[in-house]
Write a protein that binds this DNA or RNA. Sequence first.
DNA 1: ATTCAGTAGATTGGATCCAGAAAATGGCAC
DNA 2: GTGCCATTTTCTGGATCCAATCTACTGAAT
Lengths: 220, 220
Amino acid sequence: MKLKSVDISKTASASSIVFEALRKAIIEGELTEGEPLRQDEIARLFNTSRIPVREAISRLEEQGLVKTQRYKGAVVSGLSVGEAEEIFDFRALIEPEVIRRAVPLMSPDILDAARASCAAFSESSDPMRWGDLNRDFHSALYSASGLQYHLDVIDNAMDRVDRYLRAQLVLSNGMERANDEHLMILEACAAGDASLAAERTRLHITSARQSLIQNIHSLR
Amino acid sequence: MKLKSVDISKTASASSIVFEALRKAIIEGELTEGEPLRQDEIARLFNTSRIPVREAISRLEEQGLVKTQRYKGAVVSGLSVGEAEEIFDFRALIEPEVIRRAVPLMSPDILDAARASCAAFSESSDPMRWGDLNRDFHSALYSASGLQYHLDVIDNAMDRVDRYLRAQLVLSNGMERANDEHLMILEACAAGDASLAAERTRLHITSARQSLIQNIHSLR
DNA sequence: ATTCAGTAGATTGGATCCAGAAAATGGCAC
DNA sequence: GTGCCATTTTCTGGATCCAATCTACTGAAT
């Protein structure tokens, strides 16, 4: 008997559907900073009651994506430029190390997947997709490390600065430079040079940070 | 009229009380790995309904402290030795950098606070308190950095390995060595030598990691 | 004895309902 | 018209209730 096995226990609950949807909406900037999340409204939107919505919101708060005040509700939590810088610094610290440890473990499959994401990134003309493809590329490489905790932490950091990352890609020549840097990182990985890949990853992140700071005026 | 002002908006909600209590119980090992969390039971324990309990559990899951399966409930999520090692590696990467950036900003007040925690740590004969005092000491120093995101991430990492940390302190001469290392770190901080403080912090963490691996048998 | 369907109890996920707090509204004095 | 207080409305936090699912047990067929 050949059946595609589906882990039935992982069918999504209402609360996780709401959680994922809100998370996506927040990191992509559809819900903007300070915007209040009305439980009723969201519940109606998803044809559910407020209970799953509240669970979703409390999870979002744990992730730092919203802030709640008792009896006042939740608002999308913004990120000051200073906070964004801090998170870029954080990424510049951890991601190079993850890729350093990933390089020796990179299978051809993984390199191919990364190449594919990279190509899709460079070819896409839709700025809205750049953010996703950019993350796909990095995730593909990092995942080879097998460092689950590190990967989770990186994901959270990326979530938080996602809006800034997207903004940074569309302005000036952010997209072109990111693509160049991706190719350089890929090259180092393919060559098996872990230290070089790490250093290039570090530069990739710090250059995004720099570009963010310089263009801060056009973002606000 | 002199009244001690209390921010009434921060009076804890039922769900956060439950959350904090469960978090503490888990990281201190009162609730052991694999132990199921029965919503009813917990609700009765706190004289509340299951709603706040469920919110607390979903927050705990977001923090990685429990794992839930749909319709089956939540169990305290354990940590394999490999995962604990990964988190120690993570700490060894990030905490030195935080202290490096904290040193130039350390006021005498903060140094005093750290000295106090350190002294309390060395004098305490209650193994159950060592874990707390150890964290107090490090937190005091790190907090000077003002890097809120880094601090949050470190807290989460500490939560996850708290049980291993405590275990590591009680066995062999873990406590003595930790105390020596604390004094060395403190000395470097007081002298304003950021790089030295960073390096000593790194060694402090990797030595705990080593000790954990060597004594792994006696822990299981 | 073993295996399997069927059932009852336990447990979770979600809906509805209620109380308390915050915001909005509407007089009312000035 | 403006500022202030009371009332109404809106909204959140929590309690209770219901449905869906899991689990343990029973008992019958083989």
